[in-house]
């Protein structure tokens, strides 16, 4: 069974109270961007919409075929949400993961940091815990595999490399990615709806700051929208 959502065709799989959508053919929007449109349509009986790069999972209050019809009949405004271009400051701090990064990439840490700064990144998806960002845009030479077992707690605001993704940890959590630095800017506001200030499709460029600037910006307690205003 197939369903068409905003010019994309999806194969529909039902799993009890879950509806899983896998793309047959897509257009310019990513799955997390299409999933956001389904979520914002607030279809009756839908309790959650979760998206990764390869699947949209719709959790329903109960098994329900009408929800698939509702998704197929969603009307989308012609104007798609324009993606934002945002700057994010990064303080490259000495970290225990530096050695791992140098060993895997055969690059010195300064050259690695410069190469990281040259790229522009796209927010691909959310996941893991609130305010965690999966960003794409690293060339293969900069990829560093995730650790076999997660290390202990890392600081909130840490920016880390996990395989092909650049990640931002908004909360202090155990982490299995390789930390390269940290940002004093918040992208998460847990009490707001939506709780994130950045959305899939937005692009991010990193701006290097030193320790003094890190402390100065931290003291302002800015979020990414204020910082870019």
């Amino acid at each position: 069974m197939f369903v068409h959502v905003n010019k994309s065709t999806f194969l529909v799989k039902k799993l009890d109270d879950l509806i899983l959508l896998h793309p047959e053919q897509t257009h310019s929007l990513s799955l997390p961007q299409i999933a956001k449109q389904i979520l914002d349509a607030a279809i009756a009986g839908v309790s959650n919409v979760i998206a990764t790069e390869d699947e949209i999972c719709i959790q329903c209050e109960q098994e329900n075929d009408e929800i698939i019809d509702s998704i197929a009949n969603l009307e989308f405004s012609k104007e798609e949400r324009t993606s934002k271009q945002l700057r994010l400051p990064i303080y490259f701090e000495e970290h225990v993961d530096t050695q791992r990064i140098e060993e895997h990439t055969k690059m010195g840490i300064d050259a690695y940091r410069n190469a990281i700064l040259e790229q522009s990144y796209t927010l691909s998806m959310f996941g893991f815990v609130p305010g965690f960002l999966y960003m794409r845009g690293m060339p293969k030479v900069l990829w560093v595999p995730r650790k076999q077992s997660p290390s202990t707690q890392i600081e909130q605001g840490s920016i880390a490399v996990g395989g092909e993704f650049l990640g931002l940890y908004s909360l202090e959590t155990p982490a299995g990615w390789n930390v390269i630095g940290k940002t004093p800017i918040r992208v998460l506001n847990l009490s707001d709806t939506p709780p994130t200030l950045i959305h899939p499709g937005d692009t991010i460029t990193l701006e290097p700051i030193d320790e003094k600037e890190f402390k100065a910006i931290s003291a302002l307690s800015q979020n990414i929208i204020d910082y870019n205003a």
Binding site: A35, K36, L39, A42, S47, N48, V49, I50, A51, Q59, F126, G127, F128, V129, P130, G131, F132, L190, T193, P194, P195, T196
Partner: peptide, 11 residues
């Protein structure tokens, strides 16, 4: 809480 798993907030 429902409708927030998109933003990685568990139910």
């Amino acid at each position: 809480r429902y409708g927030l798993a998109y933003y990685s907030i568990p139910q």
